[in-house]
Amino acid sequence: MGELVTLDGFPLSGVTRDGIWKINSLPGWNQRPPVKRNRESRTSGDGSFKTPVFYENRLITINGRLFTKNHDYLHQAEDMLNALGHRGGVKLLVEGHGPTQWATVDPRDSPDLTAVTGNFLQFQIPLEAIDPFKYGESYAVTGNTTDAASLFHRGTVSAWPVVTVSASSSSGYTLTLNGRQVVVTRAIASSSPHEIDFRTGILRVGGSVVTGGLSTANFSPINPGMPQNMSISTGSGSYGSITVRYSDTYI
């Protein structure tokens, strides 16, 4: 597979109408972001109390160069580079450097553009991913009260799914993954599916956030590199189905 780097769908490597794009380096892309945690020192003991490990934003810089067909194309490329992703929330996609991965990025500063000659441009684009994880292939796996959803991903860290539940049950339902249960006591109608984000624990009904609908919220991620099943059970012998959406996840 050849190298392909795109920002908001625009190719920054390969041949385009502007000329020949080359990526020199992508610092921050293949490095793990800095760890952040709230340390609480043991005043009468060694070290600190155990606290969760989280990550800072991922800081990425695209360093590249462009050989344009003529001087006019060089200036057009400068305008394009200044506009790419300027409002943030765009996809940075990298192929040809291991598994295909992407992240959602915002601008961290203005691009640094240097016209070395009339048709040779060097550029540096500083970006920031407020979600420090990188993602790969995405999946939508279905299951029901008879057949569990069979889940697997090829990433390197745990993936958090978003689950859509369709059922008709006045007593709610239970989702089970890796022995952990999420018990939803809110009634569900077939005309109004539920959506549960396992990362945030938020339950939405008809697109709106609802509270008080969970009696047990023991959320589990989908661990990398091993098969897992998510099952649904409903009260009163009613039928329910689920669609589990997630992506290969990397740090």
Rank of each mutant, 00 (worst) to 15 (best):
L74K: 09
D109M: 07
L81H: 07
F67Q: 13
P99V: 04
F67M: 08
E95I: 00
D79P: 03
G98P: 07
Q101Y: 00
D106F: 08
T117Q: 09
G118M: 03
L74N: 05
T117F: 06
A115E: 11
F67D: 08
A83M: 07
S110M: 08
L93Q: 03
R65A: 15
T104P: 05
L74R: 13
D112H: 13
E95L: 02
G85C: 11
T100V: 01
T100H: 00
P99N: 07
K91P: 00
P107F: 04
R108G: 12
M80H: 08
H86S: 15
T117G: 10
P111N: 15
T68F: 01
M80S: 11
R87F: 11
Q101C: 04
L84M: 05
D112Y: 11
H97C: 04
T114S: 14
H97K: 13
L81A: 04
L113A: 10
D112W: 03
P107Y: 08
V90Y: 03
N82H: 05
P107C: 06
A115P: 04
G85V: 08
L113R: 14
Q101R: 12
M80Q: 13
A83E: 15
L113Y: 10
S110I: 06
G98D: 05
D106N: 15
G98W: 00
P99W: 01
L74D: 05
G89P: 08
D109E: 11
V116Y: 07
D109Q: 11
T114Q: 13
H97G: 02
V94D: 01
K91G: 01
P111W: 06
D72A: 13
T104D: 09
R87V: 12
D109K: 13
H71M: 03
S110R: 14
L74A: 09
Q101P: 03
P107E: 09
G88I: 09
A77H: 10
D106M: 10
K69V: 11
L81R: 06
V105F: 05
R87A: 15
L84S: 05
L92T: 02
S110G: 08
Q101K: 08
P99L: 05
T117K: 04
Q76P: 03
V90M: 04
Y73L: 10
L74F: 00
H71Y: 05
L93V: 01
M80K: 15
N82R: 13
G88Y: 06
Y73G: 04
S110T: 13
